[in-house]
Design a protein around this nucleic acid. Structure first.
Lengths: 214, 214
DNA sequence: CCTCGATTCTTACGCTGTAAGAGACGAGGA
DNA sequence: TCCTCGTCTCTTACAGCGTAAGAATCGAGG
């Protein structure tokens, strides 16, 4: 047999299928993704895809893995402390989610237990130099915070981009402070940075206090 | 006409429909909810439900509203500062989400712009006595944190309850620290309290600092 | 009693995920 | 050269979905 032992007539691959799925979701949203349409995008019938993916759920998991695997490659820079590294991971995760907002509802709904995501956690625990259970709490808090925050920002239907956009018709008499807040509101990036810094600060300050008191 | 002007043959009401939907989702999960099955639960054909709910999406929104409306009734206690009040709202929200975990994927995916949720934000901005835009950032950070955290805890498929459960077969050689963390891990309530306190502390400390520097 | 509006049911359409099996292809051995 | 076999692809089919359109039924008010 030759080297390329898997060369079907359409040159399909599990990787190419996932690629196409991600592109499709980026363009049309997760709700529009069906096996038939994805097959059409690849010039193939729906059932053909089942040769590369056991079912649609597995395809969803593969999409999530694409985003998370980018985090596994984040190495600690020299002299960097756990807090800085965790901040960089959080920002990268957010970047990935924003680059593929269609995957956001999936990432929020399905557990991230791929080897890559476990690797990220393991690295975090090593860098933090804290009791592992406490470090896991921190990582968990940061990752879930990023997910929740990004979800509120971009995880909506493709139409309305943000809460602010969908509230242009707000009743300023009933909610005067909210109306003003939306007028003066910061950009999403700034709001994320503000909240992330607050969380990290709080996490590490809280931990220091509990260490001192024990 | 008499007082009860709407008494159909099955005694149906929009409220009763939403009740049944919530009960069904609590029991079988959101994925299992279909108009036909919900109708059967109420002794009625599927199309009958469309007399009380314009479509399935509106039914979803009604489910979310059920959870959020519990927050609108949280009054500030005498002498309570914004930080304490916000903590209580967060804990109540989490309690609601945990009581109806089937609704969690909805709450995460759909924007919360019902009057009740807007009222919660407005009250928060009044109590915080900060620039409204800054206050909104705080509320946003806390609510999205609660959502993300609870999602990671209970927003999974009905089968696997938590990350810990679904990782019982973890490879302890590749991920030694993670394995130990899971062994020593705190309960979800404690982890939530730890992270919430950290976030609130960080938020208000960060805000004090930025006020002092301006 | 009769009418009318509110409520419910029937039927139908196009879509979904995917089970089952038949068909086509191309590389390896005879 | 041909034949075979494993890999890949397609065809067909089924049960279920949301919901549009309209017919049927009911109970209350005139």
């Amino acid at each position: 047999m030759s080297d390329r032992r898997a060369r079907p007539r359409a040159g399909l691959t599990r990787e190419r299928v996932v690629d196409a799925a991600l592109a499709f979701v980026d363009k049309h949203g997760i709700a529009a993704l069906s096996m038939r349409k994805l097959g059409a995008e690849l010039g193939v019938e729906a059932m053909t895809l089942y040769h590369y993916v056991p079912n649609k759920e597995a395809l969803f998991d593969a999409l999530i893995d694409r985003l998370v695997s980018a985090l596994a490659g984040i190495e600690p820079e020299s002299g960097e402390r756990g807090q800085q590294w965790l901040g960089r991971v959080a920002r990268t995760y957010r970047g990935q989610l924003l680059a593929h907002p269609g995957v956001l509802p999936l990432a929020a709904t399905r557990p991230a237990v791929s080897p890559d995501s476990l690797q990220v956690i393991e690295t975090a625990l090593r860098l933090l130099e804290l009791p592992p259970a406490r470090g896991l709490d921190m990582v968990n808090a940061v990752m879930t915070f990023v997910l929740g925050h990004t979800l509120a920002e971009a995880g909506r239907a493709p139409g309305a981009q943000s809460d602010v956009d969908s509230l242009g018709h707000l009743d300023a008499d009933r909610f005067p402070l909210l109306a003003q807040a939306l007028r003066d509101g910061a950009r999403h990036d700034e709001r994320f940075e503000f909240a992330l810094e607050a969380l990290l600060t709080g996490l590490f300050a809280t931990d220091l206090r509990s260490e001192a008191s024990e």
